[in-house]
Amino acid sequence: MLDFSTLPAALPILWSGVKMTLFLSTMAVVLGLIVGTLMCSARLSKNYPLQLFARFYITLFRGVPLLVQLMISYYCLPLIGINIPALVAATGCIGLCAGAYMAEILRGGFQSLPPGQKESALMVGLSNSHILFFIELPQVIKLTIPGLINETILLVKASSLISVVGIAELTRTAQNLAASNFQPFQFYLTAAAIYFVLNSAISVFGFWLEKRSNNRVIV
């Protein structure tokens, strides 16, 4: 039978890993949303070089595995003279990658808005930035909540890869504990359970958000 007796003593260590995972994921989501919005506007802009750049960015970040991106940010940035802590590099990396995915999700949202809205907003004399921030973005975010929540769950899962560059988030902590207690199955199972709880919570939050925003938005 599996022996879980070492687990209680390890819980505080695992908790510190959970906090790190949450911190990394939150930072990545925030960065991803910012980058995603920018890339999405670039992708939809009429400026051709800008559009091309956004396409290139999205293809690149969606086509290369995140693990490889993390390794590039970890090994190659110092080679070109950028010395930043591994934590910053890793967070930036998953944030930029999330940005590419979020750009595509948001683009779907923007394209589903009726074009008449923008035309009438221009007619009544609203500026482009006004239209973006006060008319389009609020609706797009509400429309794309399911996609964005999905992406957030993917990000929490992706943050496990950061363990490879030696940051003590949940996976790394579980790895260390598994190695020091010689009980891989127990600790990885616990880590899996923790990820499951975290992501279920995000998913429930998503449903709640979706339901709440549906009551208010009229599209």
Binding site: I153, F185, Y195
Partner: peptide
């Protein structure tokens, strides 16, 4: 399906490869 979709692949792989021998 929910468990597989909401846990990282890395953890699943560790569980199978390193944890597998325990079971």
């Amino acid at each position: 399906v929910e468990v597989i979709r909401s846990t990282p692949f890395l953890i699943q792989l560790f569980l199978l490869y390193y944890g597998g021998p325990s079971i």
